[in-house]
Design a binder for these strands. Structure first.
Lengths: 149, 149
DNA sequence: TTTACTGCAAAGGGTTTGCATGAGG
DNA sequence: CCTCATGCAAACCCTTTGCAGTAAA
């Protein structure tokens, strides 16, 4: 999403646009790693050294209400998702990385349609996480099993 | 799951079995509402008035490591899932209720198989949440729109 | 000019930890 | 008997709140 589109989307929701908000929005939207509040903080601090976490939390709430991002609660803290299209997240239980995958996108779409059609539940959005070991951590795990310390 | 099976499952993991742990395990496993720590606390307090939240947190960790339950992080606090089979949760954004649905179970199974087969990600378990309005809250919302205060 | 956002500090609340006592195997 | 769970209290940390100054529209 371009800055202009971003500004438009925010104004649609009657939200005041500030440089800080744009920076935070871009830190989330121009990333695919589902950053945490701390990570967003670190990415934005270069341009806005005086910004505090309170502003980040406030802005993330605004962005979520405007329909631009989604909060993804995790055990220790939340991460933020910029890809609102139905898709699958792969969550590594070892390193904690979260990546989107194109695999199964169609299946999630069909699943959403099924739920919408066959249940009396009015679907707004969905979160599909597969937890396990990413390629790298699985390899490290495998080698540890073959030659334990 | 019966108490006997429960005891066996815990002992398999080298876990010491206590009356408190059995009570907590049953409070989660004999429920379908994905209780929070507070709810588990309230359900167990009748039988163990002196039990504290620390014991509940500790036991839930043990149960999760033993593969009996899964933690489901939510914005304010975690809930606990006893249905580890692939399925879809319906999460009401209004009343906060979380219910399992049978709809789409096959689709989630196939999705899991697809990810396992086509990616180099080693799947352990999955969380599939559809967020939106349950039947009751959708109806209340509808009537509010037709006759606003 | 009016509204509401930012930054700062303090408070809030779910979760974790340390330790003495007590119970399981 | 030895190990580890329980209960209690305090600590932790993520997140929220209140307020004065300031920027957006």
């Amino acid at each position: 999403m371009t800055q202009q589109e971003l500004v438009a989307r925010l104004r649609e929701g009657g939200v005041r646009v500030t440089p800080q908000r744009l920076a935070i929005a871009e830190a989330v939207l121009n990333s695919t790693d589902h950053p945490s509040v701390q990570q967003i903080y670190e990415r934005v601090r270069d341009h806005f050294p005086s910004m505090t976490l309170a502003t980040i939390y406030s802005t993330l709430g605004v962005l979520e209400k405007s329909g631009l991002i989604q909060e993804l609660p995790f055990p220790k803290s939340s991460r933020y998702e910029s890809n609102l299209e139905p898709h699958v997240n792969l969550v590594c239980v070892q390193c904690g990385n979260v990546v989107d995958t194109d695999l199964g996108r169609e299946a999630v779409l069909r699943l959403k349609a099924l739920i919408s059609r066959e249940s009396n539940f009015s679907v707004a959005w969905q979160r599909v996480d597969f937890h396990g070991w990413c390629h790298r951590c699985a390899a490290a795990r495998e080698s540890r099993q073959h030659s334990p310390a």
